[in-house]
Amino acid sequence: MELLFSVLIAILTGTGIYLLLRARTFPVVMGVALISYAVNLFLLAMGRLRTGQPAIIGTGESYTDPLPQALVLTAIVIGFAMTAFVTVLALRARGELGNDHVDGFEERGREQERQQSASEEKPAEPGDDTQEPRP
């Protein structure tokens, strides 16, 4: 079981880092999410893998280590807050800079390809009334 668990952590980390190294903001956010999964599992592993021994007094003879769990619980919630912040930052960056490249500008020499790409979009015109959030 320990080997399986380690391989799972390894694959989550590897895919997370691969996505983290992408050039667009959205895959980076997904990469961060995968990495935080891996980190949470790793933290849990510090309390070792126990089956059927939740840290609830009175339910059994021995209990799993509650401390890593408390850490992971806060990490999950904080992770959500962080993911939310990063995604909105990415959104804002796209609005301000006109693209969603992590460096804030499109790489040179790739405009041609992008123009051919079907997903090319144009920013809404400033002053367009649909842009304003309705009350």
């Binding site: 992408r22 050039a23 667009r24 903001t25 959205f26 895959p27 956010v29 995604t87 909105v88 990415a90 959104l91 796209r94 969603d100 490249h101 790489e107 790739r110 390809e113 992008r114 790409s117 079907a118 997903s119 979009e121």
Partner: peptide, 13 residues
């Protein structure tokens, strides 16, 4: 978020 971002990533790499 995805609603407001491009649905596909261009191939940059």
């Amino acid at each position: 978020i995805l609603f407001l971002l491009p649905p596909k990533s261009p191939n940059d790499s």
